[in-house]
């Protein structure tokens, strides 16, 4: 069974994540939770497959340092945050977070994101998709116009069926585009064990070929 540790300073958020996890099919076990990143390092949290991590634990700004240490230790981190701005999302991805989920998206995407993180398969929720689609930094990976279109339409409507209908694609093609973009980002990101795992798995699954990287 997939296990998860939840780091969030708000009890209501922790209760919500617990509820979603217990209702998931198959269920996800929340092994520990707390308002401090320490729970992810201590027993039993250190054994969890996935860390759900609130970026804003205090007033000192996003906890990029904590995120980096978790990633460097090979943990699969789902960043779960209030912040919707592009810079934060892209920075988390650069650091090596598995995916970036805003609190508004939690209900629809948390369970799927945790399951994807546990199996090293890419997962791009709509807010992250919007950030990737509007990324104008010099070091971003090369995306095709079609990939950008898919990212932005997914951000707009949050429905892959609608994106598929709008762009005359199938839902699985839409997923393919999103996954390929995510892997491209993992490939240009900082060296981290989680990133390597994501890219390796994507190549095994045929999401992307070695030439495309």
């Amino acid at each position: 069974m997939t296990s998860v540790v939840v780091v969030d300073d708000h009890p209501a958020v922790i209760a919500g994540v617990r509820a979603w996890c217990s209702a998931a099919e198959p269920p996800i076990e929340v092994v520990d939770s707390g308002s401090n990143v320490g729970v992810a390092w201590l027993d039993p949290g250190d054994r969890a497959d996935v860390v759900v991590f609130d970026l804003q634990l205090d007033l000192s700004g996003p906890a990029y340092g904590d995120l980096k240490r978790l990633v460097d230790a090979g943990r699969q981190v789902v960043v779960y945050t209030m912040r919707e701005d592009k810079e934060t999302a892209l920075t988390c991805l650069d650091i090596g977070a598995f995916t970036y989920l805003t609190k508004a998206e939690g209900e629809d995407h948390m369970v799927a994101a945790i399951q994807a993180a546990a199996s090293n398969t890419p997962y791009t929720p709509p807010a992250l998709s919007g950030a990737l689609g509007t990324d104008t930094r010099a070091n971003r990976p090369n995306l095709t116009q079609r990939q950008v279109d898919v990212l932005l339409e997914w951000f707009h409507c949050e429905s892959k069926e609608m994106v598929a209908q709008k762009l005359n694609l199938t839902v699985s093609t839409v997923n393919g585009y999103l996954d390929r973009v995510r892997v491209k980002y993992a490939n240009v990101g900082r060296e981290a064990p989680t990133k390597a795992a994501l890219v390796a798995r994507a190549i095994q699954d045929g999401i992307i070929s070695v030439d495309e990287l």
């Binding site: 919007g130 689609g133 932005l152 707009h156």
Partner: peptide, 16 residues
């Protein structure tokens, strides 16, 4: 759901 995307060459307003 209401979204706005500003790209260098276009601006999109979307509502679902």
């Amino acid at each position: 759901r209401l979204t706005v995307v500003g790209a260098p060459d276009q601006v999109t307003v979307s509502v679902v």
